[in-house]
Structures are given as structure tokens and as C-alpha cells.
Design a protein around this nucleic acid. Structure first.
Lengths: 239, 239
DNA sequence: TCAAAAGTGTTGTATGTACACCCATGG
DNA sequence: CCATGGGTGTACATACAACACTTTTGA
């Protein structure tokens, strides 16, 4: 648009990478694919691929997710752009600029490999590394971003099925933040935040087989939380 | 990396766009350039340009800023990636994926046009629109992002000279948020946040010519604020 | 009747807000 | 001596953390 020198049109490849997260059995998991080709053949990586000429990065992200992991038309898929990684040496073969996304899923179906992915699998977050390319860093950035989003938005409901209990919602916070929370206080904060959750009239469900049946809630539709639900203080770092 | 079909290498142009903000005389300003070429010739736009083959987007952003506005090696320039805009139709000529940045400056020097920019100028934020391309949206996203960053990081000091008074710091918050703040409470919050600011021993400066000389502070080096400095409640939106 | 999970109540402390008030300087 | 901006004190309301307690279910 500006700066029409002769290097301007040097070809760039533009790709997307997805950090797809879910909470399974109280633990944070990430969706990985095993690479079928060099470089990094046989290594695990985030799903992703090339953006095609007529599609936006967001569209490409959904398409690649479907192609490589079989997760197509997943209900409740929440996609959000993370940032763009553009260091010249991040891909050993050529100049690749990658737009990274985070995606959140409730109650995840089993994925299956496809396209260039030899296989696809849910992997516990803590056992995911090391990954191919600079995906360790992308994954860490995604985790940090999602943790922060939970404080200020109703995003946690994107990890939950359409109707969920407050206990399940709390598990999401605990899994992402890696901290136990006080149940009574958590419950009060959530209910005191307008638009965070909406009760499902009369409905109840047993959670672990035992215990009192819990009331069910739906996402309340609020984009931002007032007041925010702040995580317990990671103490001030020294100056 | 995955998906080696023949459309994969279709050429994309990758550009950067910069939303450079500053606070002048208590009001938020943005750095704009007048376009010298079609499309949108004569219209105002955010500075920016093509990423070159051997540089990262961050490097390109600094280079373009220097070329188009003469702001080179500005002390205290804070650059931060905003997001990437990739809609296929955002540039009428060709497929352009643009990585947008926010940049903050204290006490800004006068810019001068250069490269493809006919001229460059600081423009009050409220009078900046309409801009070329999708730059209205990028500018709005940048404003929103900076407003949020002020709550949780020491970013506001990036708008201030190396040594500043608490009154100047407060003006930054008020200009970006568009809200007046209570001075005594603002002062206490800032001083109660470890690592936000550090006093300059014994130093003082007159602010508006009149009034008591104010103590001087330097950035305290803390990346994140504990506790955060939340903006006055934009009230809960209806569900 | 016990364990497990949901849900309610209470209390001390911290925090935020809205002010009133004093201090130092230039005109 | 007044206007202007810096700086301190205080009182009220609210919010939050911690923990005791009750309720309802399956085994």
C-alpha cells in the first residue's frame, strides 16, 4: 500500500495455527496433531495450515481444524485471534507468517487425523511439550491469554456444555488457572455478576454420581464481566 | 507446513499498520499520514507498509515509522502487536494481510512526511475519522486495547517523559479513558501498587506555571499491576 | 449412616469512594 | 491575597476471603 519497492511483492506464505483447548476430567487438554511430513515429521504440533487466496485467517482456521482433526461444525466452538508470529527464521524452509488462534471446546469429541496429520489427539496440557516449530511459545501465549480472558469475560462457558452446573464452571477456572478456588465464594461471585449465567428453571443434574443434584445454568450472554472475577494474587514480582 | 496443495503458495502481501498514540495537552492524539498514491490518494491513513523478506513484523513497524514520519530512534517508544487483519477484500487491489501495532509516545516530536506519505501529522483522536482502508476499525481496536492495558500494566508511563509527575500520569488515564478521576484516590492507588512508579529523590517540578511544585517519578519497572487500576464502571449491559 | 457434592450464613478485614482540608507557588 | 495545582486525612459503604454449617443424594 505504501513503499512500492521491488522487494515488496516477495512471496510470503501465510498460515494459521490453532491452540485448541478443552477441560477433560478436571484437567486442561490441548489438541495436537502428529506431523506426517518433514520438517519435524513424527513430532507433535498444533493443527494449522495455509490460508487460501479467497479466505480470511478466521475462515482458514475453521477449515484446517475440520480437515486435520475431523472437528467440523463443532457446536459451541469459540475462536479468537491470539497474535501473529513473523520471525523470519521460524520455519526452516521458507518465509512463513502465521496467525495464531485460540479455540475453546466443551465436552470434546475424539479427533482423527486427516490431511497432513498422521494422527490427532487430546493431550494433557502439562505433557504437551516439546512441540514442532515455535509452537511451545504459541501454546504458552494461548494459555496465558485464556487465563486472563477468564477474569474479564464469560469465556469460561465456552468450555462447558450448553447447560452446566456451577461446579463444572468452577472446574474450568481451576483447570486453566491451576489454583483451587473457594466454592461458596466462587458461586456467589458468579451469581452476582449480571449476565454471566442464567438459571435453567427447575432443572438439576447429578454431577459425580453422588451428592446433591446441582442446578443447571446457561451462558448469560454478557461479553464482559462486571465486576471481574480475578484470580488469586500471583504475588507482585520484585522491581 | 501442512496442506501442500497448489494454491498454498499463492502470493500474499504482508504489511504492518501502526496506531501511534500520544497525549498532548491532555487530549489523546494519533499519528496519521496523508496518502500520496491511489487508492485513497489524499486521504488520511495510519502509517505502515510492506514487510520485507528478511525482517519480522516488529522490525518492519519500526522501519516504516521512521521512513514515513521521520520518527526514528524515538526514546521510550513502546510497540505492541494488536492483531492481524486478513479479510480478502480489505485492500481493493490485491490480497493484503496486515499486522497492526499500537505504539505509544511521550512528548512527541513533530513528524514530517516521507516515503509514500505526502505529509504526517498528529491529529486529535476524536477528529481522526474517516480513514482509508479499514483503518477506522484498527484505530478503534487500538484505543480499546490501550484502555484495557492501562488497567493492568504500567503502560501509562510509556506516554510520559522519563521523569513525570503524578498529575501528568493521571492526565494520561483521563485522556485515554475519557473520564475524570479523583486525584487523591488516584495518587494513593498508584503509590500503593508496588513497582508502578519510583520516586526521584528530592526532585520537583512546576506543572502549569502555577501551583505547588510536584514530586517527580520514574517508571517502576513492574510489567503487571497488583492490584489493577480499574476504570470507573462502564455499567453492566443488559443480557 | 456415611461420604460426597450442592448450597447458605457469618464475620473480620481490606478496599474503594467521596469528600473536606492543608500546602506551596506565581501573578 | 487569590487562583491553581499538589498533597493528606477521614468516614462510609462495599467487596472479598475464610470457614462453619445445612441439605440432598447414592452406596
Amino acid at each position: 500500500m505504501r513503499g512500492y519497492d521491488k522487494h515488496a511483492y516477495e512471496p510470503f506464505a501465510v498460515t494459521v495455527d490453532l491452540a485448541v483447548l478443552t477441560v477433560r476430567a478436571g484437567a486442561l487438554h490441548v489438541l495436537l496433531v502428529e506431523r506426517g511430513q518433514e520438517p519435524y515429521a513424527g513430532r507433535w504440533a498444533l493443527p494449522g495450515g495455509f490460508v487460501q487466496p479467497a479466505e480470511s485467517a478466521e475462515t482458514a482456521a475453521r477449515r484446517e481444524l475440520a480437515e486435520e482433526t475431523g472437528l467440523a461444525d463443532v457446536s459451541g466452538l469459540h475462536l479468537e485471534q491470539l497474535r501473529t508470529y513473523s520471525e523470519p527464521e521460524r520455519d526452516p524452509r521458507m518465509r512463513v507468517v502465521s496467525v495464531a488462534f485460540t479455540a475453546l471446546l466443551p465436552d470434546p469429541p475424539e479427533p482423527h487425523g486427516g490431511g497432513d496429520a498422521a494422527q490427532a489427539r487430546w493431550v494433557p496440557y502439562d505433557g504437551a511439550r516439546p512441540l514442532a516449530f515455535d509452537h511451545d511459545r504459541i501454546l504458552a501465549d494461548a494459555h496465558e491469554r485464556v487465563g486472563a480472558r477468564l477474569e474479564h469475560t464469560g469465556l469460561a462457558t465456552a468450555f462447558c456444555p450448553p447447560e452446566f452446573t456451577l461446579g463444572e464452571l468452577q472446574q474450568v477456572y481451576e483447570a486453566v488457572w491451576g489454583t483451587p478456588l473457594d466454592r461458596p465464594n466462587f458461586r456467589r461471585k458468579v451469581l452476582a455478576t449480571p449476565g454471566f449465567v442464567a438459571p435453567v428453571a427447575g432443572a438439576a443434574r447429578l454431577t459425580g454420581g453422588r451428592g446433591k443434584p446441582a442446578a443447571l445454568y446457561r451462558p448469560g450472554g454478557a461479553a464482559v464481566l462486571h465486576p471481574p472475577l480475578l484470580r488469586p494474587s500471583r504475588e507482585g514480582r520484585p522491581a
